[in-house]
């Protein structure tokens, strides 16, 4: 018995000593690594310390989209599909509702004469200005390159909204107003929004999640052809101008399309590195404007 006790105390002592050692080692090893990690984090974009930004490499998926402007007819089917898929309420019809549009997928004029419309979702930048400025970390770029927004954390300061060079973030200026019957069709996969938060395109991440779950259940990899028309906008596009896929896979359709000589990205000079790649319209010719 006594021996046992002794052994126990000895064990305890050893444990204590070990802990002490551990603590000291921790201080010596931990603090510098803590500090170095901090600097690594601060200087994240320099890639000096080998720590690459999330979603850039090593990850299996890097979601991206290719929009072929030569195919797009500007019909707006993507806009409607997005609104229905993501439970976005109608804007309203009074002067008061000016500027309260929520359009994750939107049409904006483009071209030299601003004479045709192009669809524009959130561009899911690799180097997004909006995630950097968020004071609470409610918006961030996840491991798969999606720039997402956590509504429960968002405080509604709208800093990300003003920092987005593409105006792709939307603030819920009011509580969504639905006619009672419209509540029936709301998509159960997507929450409706509270008022006072910023929201944005998710590349239909709920569909991605569902697809992943299905693939896991069936014990297989996700195939490219399942992805190409995955988001609601790509799914309906009458011309097939919108293509979705995994940019990390060089064989995927989007990666192939992104190599096109017509490929360009919006606001390239801003260094935001969008993952939505546009394919330019071929040069067109108008005879004259006067009859």
């Amino acid at each position: 018995m006594e021996e046992e006790k002794k052994r126990e105390t000895k064990n305890k002592k050893e444990k204590r000593n070990f802990l002490k050692l551990f603590a000291i080692a921790g201080i010596f090893a931990g603090v510098p690594s803590f500090v170095s990690k901090f600097f690594a984090l601060v200087s994240k974009n320099d890639n000096e310390n080998g720590e690459e930004p999330e979603g850039k490499s090593g990850e299996k998926y890097r979601w991206g989209m290719v929009i072929d402007l030569d195919l797009c007819t500007g019909c707006g089917a993507c806009v409607i599909a997005c609104k229905i898929e993501n439970n976005i309420p109608p804007t309203g019809y009074t002067e008061r509702d000016r500027g309260t549009e929520i359009e994750w997928m939107s049409l904006i004029p483009a071209g030299e004469d601003k004479d045709y419309m192009i669809p524009i979702p959130c561009l899911h930048c690799d180097n997004p200005p909006c995630t950097k400025v968020c004071p609470v970390g409610a918006t961030y770029i996840n491991d798969e390159g999606l720039v997402v927004q956590i509504w429960d954390r968002c405080i509604g300061c709208r800093y990300c909204q003003v920092s987005c060079p593409y105006e792709r973030k939307f603030f819920t200026w009011k509580k969504p107003e639905w006619p009672e019957t419209y509540l029936q069709w709301l998509n159960p996969d997507v929450p409706t929004r509270p008022k006072g938060v910023v929201e944005k395109c998710t590349f239909c991440s709920h569909r991605i999640r569902k697809l992943k779950e299905r693939a896991r259940d069936e014990d297989r990899e996700i195939e490219d052809k399942e992805l190409v028309r995955l988001p609601a906008c790509a799914e309906v596009c009458p011309t097939g101008a919108i293509t979705f896929g995994n940019l990390a896979d060089p064989e995927s359709t989007v990666s192939q399309l992104a190599k096109s000589p017509r490929a360009f990205r919006l606001g390239e000079h801003l260094g935001t590195e969008p993952k939505v790649i546009y394919l330019a319209k071929e040069k067109r010719k108008f005879i004259s404007k006067e009859v």
Binding site: T100, E101, Q161
Partner: peptide, 9 residues
Amino acid sequence: GDIVTGLRT
């Protein structure tokens, strides 16, 4: 909500 202000998107 902030719709009562003059702020908009």
